[in-house]
Amino acid sequence: MRDHSRAGAVNWLYAAPAMLVMAVVGLLPIGYTFGLAGEYHRLALDTRFWPVVRTTLSLTAVTVALELVLGLAVALVLWSPFPGRGLARAAVLIPWALPTAVMAMAWRWIFNADSGVMGDLLFRLGLVASPQVPWLADATSAFWAIVLADVWKTTPFMAVLLMSGLAAIPDELYEAAALDGAGPVRRFLVVTLPLLKPTIVVAVIFRAIQTFGLFDLVFVLTGGGPGGRTQTIAVYAYDVVFRYQELAYGCALVVAMALCLVLMTGLMLGAARGGSGR
């Protein structure tokens, strides 16, 4: 008998145009990047490389950790229904939806050394000595400026994912825990957190991958400065290729970044699996 419900291989025609576009504009360039890459030995000699990797990793770790905590708080606040929730959710989503590069300009203005509002506010609060703080001229404060801007930008995404996880937890479990005498904090620890864990794992890995490849925010906000000390791997590689015109080595940096990414994702998946095996 012939199978009328699924004609099999012929149906690939439906997916063919999409697959073709992704293959030519996605897969092919990725492969080609590997092909272009060379001068790998320079990675070992490059005094810029390891600081850049370290900056990228710290940025990833700090940003994702802060996002997780804030995202969880936002999700808990905006999850249950209340009058005006739609509007509140929309307000929270706005940072996620705004163009990163454009908002990076906005942050540059906020962190402006002469008339930036950040310095003025902190001065008024008595936290800094002068309203004129050259935030972006100092490596440490520039790093934290990037962290702040990225956390602001991507916490909504984290919150949305966590809200979907919260929505999947049945109310009965909270009710059962409450009947067992658990207060709000205990309910959060024994019901919410364990059941939210799969969502947290997915969200953290997803965000870590994105932060690790961060380009536009750093490129526009600090330009990698001061003196290249806030460069992420992506920004550094871009500079090597397009400013110094060193194609082979730039691509080697990109390849190194991709491998780091795969390694990092693997480690995180492993840790998540090991954690749940306990």
Binding site: M22, P29, I30, Y32, A237, L247
Partner: peptide
């Protein structure tokens, strides 16, 4: 497809420009 989409854009810009 999912794996492909996880790579940051930096991975493909150089060949993309050539293309």
């Amino acid at each position: 497809i999912l794996g492909l989409s996880l790579f940051p854009g930096t991975v493909l810009i150089v060949p993309l420009k050539m293309l």
